[in-house]
Amino acid sequence: MMILITGGSGCGKSFFAEQLCMKQPGQKYYLAAMQPYGEEGEARIRRHRAMREGKGFETVERYTDYASLKLPARCTALLECIANLTANEMFGPDGSVTDPVERVLNGVSAVSKQCEMLIVITNDVGGDGVRYEASTDAYIHAIGQINAVLAERADTVIEMVAGIPLILKGQLKGF
């Protein structure tokens, strides 16, 4: 099954997703799409690592091309997050910009097929009412499109608000 979790900055998405994973038996993988840019990025990654410590996750750092990712066995996986993955697929290190939608969706699909449960964390980036330059605008639209397709494919969709899970689609047993 697939669970999609959305929500703003600092609303408790990661913590909640980990709690869900902890309820699952078997091997757990943390699929990290965030590249450790700079001191702040490293601090965020450290914070997430500390949160996962002792929870039995194996971390797989993977910034692009989830379509070819092979997980060793059927498992529970937590993919964090669509905003980072989309940026990685869209903006090349050489300054090139390509449409990321298909690659992100195919990647999530490929991972999902290998999982008993896949939890995907995303963000609602279209909500600040600011006009950006063209490539950022395209990025916002791409994430919106990706979120809509993932929500359709997901069994359960949750929006986190101040640490409270709001169920937008499907069910969540035990919560």
Partner: peptide
């Protein structure tokens, strides 16, 4: 906390602190 991650560090810290 929604919207594009702000360019300025202070704005990012602010959003996360509020959240």
């Amino acid at each position: 906390g929604s919207g594009v991650i702000p360019l300025e560090r202070a704005d990012r810290v602010y959003r996360e602190t509020v959240g």
